[in-house]
Design a protein around this nucleic acid. Structure first.
Lengths: 189, 189
DNA sequence: AAAAACAACTAACAATCGTTAGTTTTGTAA
DNA sequence: TTACAAAACTAACGATTGTTAGTTGTTTTT
């Protein structure tokens, strides 16, 4: 649907700027400058600023949605499912940290696509919750407040992009090694 | 220093809007509308939009800084220190979730106060790191990647405001009960 | 009652916003 | 070489931005 290479460049540069300053603080002239062209020239390739944002966010949101489908393989244990969710977040963050930042910080500036996005996010959380709930019922995980476990894991996973992209931050390798055990087993011995 | 009640109202209303849409997307006219006055009237009480943001963020950032001082009581165990850090975040979030949102999402739009803020945040993280490091040395906590433990806890604590303020979200009581054990002991039995 | 301080107002400013129209340049295919 | 399409450009638009100046009404102090 969208293999125009120049358009991809624009979206990529825009995502970088959105991550740093947020959608509202970035102007079309900022985006154009980062490509060494004039703002009006952007419109040979894209229809609006809003379209750029929607393209960035919806693509990665759909990746999470389809990733969650695979997580829900019935024969997996709860721990294996949680492990797979963690890996899904690591993979998508490593592949595109700028899009992750937009997803987290600028989703509320979506217009036409906002209901579609919110629905996907709600479904994702609901599926996550169901996994935790089943895990408690089966005695695999501690029977504490489900919302707290859910939000604790999701908060960490969703803001991975902050720590992954900063210098002297965490690497993809150490994330895959140590993040699951940190989240699942905790910090205290 | 700042006990002008009308100014406090303005800052409070502004914080609410900043939390919802972000600093850059909120106009002075939006803030004025929420107080049923005109935008120009705001300037009888505040000097600039930027001053509003700085007031919100610096106040709560300083609360974290002074809270961290108390955490560092030498006779506490590592677990007790971590427990106190969690309580500090819960308390400040419950007291002012709007300011927490600004702190997290809009700090990069600080201008004059940006270096001061960044210094406080770096110091806070460094103190946190030192506690974890000592905990590992003393065998109180698992010897895994410190950065991952640090970012895992901080990510959860810093985005508490999202879950605390949404309907059917978590309550202050269940947070104090279940968040420490979730973070410190993990999810899996 | 007069004076001073406070807090709202109207009107407008220069700058910047996303976007459009129309034109010129550049690269490719015939 | 010519013809065409793609992608840049200049110029400008109407709307909105944060903010200022000057004024009016209201409350508090003298």
């Amino acid at each position: 649907m969208n293999n125009n290479p120049r358009k991809k460049e624009i979206i990529s540069k825009a995502a970088r700027l959105f991550k740093k300053r947020g959608y509202s603080a970035v102007t079309m002239r900022d985006i154009a400058d980062s490509l060494n062209i004039k703002a009006a020239s952007l419109y040979n390739h894209i229809n609006s600023k809003q379209e750029i944002l929607a393209t960035i966010i919806i693509e990665i949101a759909e990746a999470f949605t389809s990733g969650m489908v695979e997580v829900q393989t019935p024969q997996l244990t709860t721990q294996e499912k949680l492990q797979k969710i963690i890996e899904l977040h690591i993979d998508l963050t490593v592949k595109n940290p700028e899009a992750m930042a937009c997803l987290n910080n600028d989703w509320m500036h979506l217009e036409e696509k906002l209901p579609y996005f919110v629905k996907m996010r709600e479904d994702y959380e609901e599926n996550f919750r169901a996994i935790l709930k089943k895990g408690i019922a089966q005695g695999e995980i501690g029977s504490r407040d489900i919302e707290i476990m859910l939000f604790s894991m999701l908060s960490t996973l969703r803001t991975l992009y902050i720590w992954y992209t900063k210098k002297d931050g965490v690497s993809a390798v150490s994330l895959k090694n140590d993040l699951p055990v940190t989240l699942l087993k905790g910090i205290i011995k």
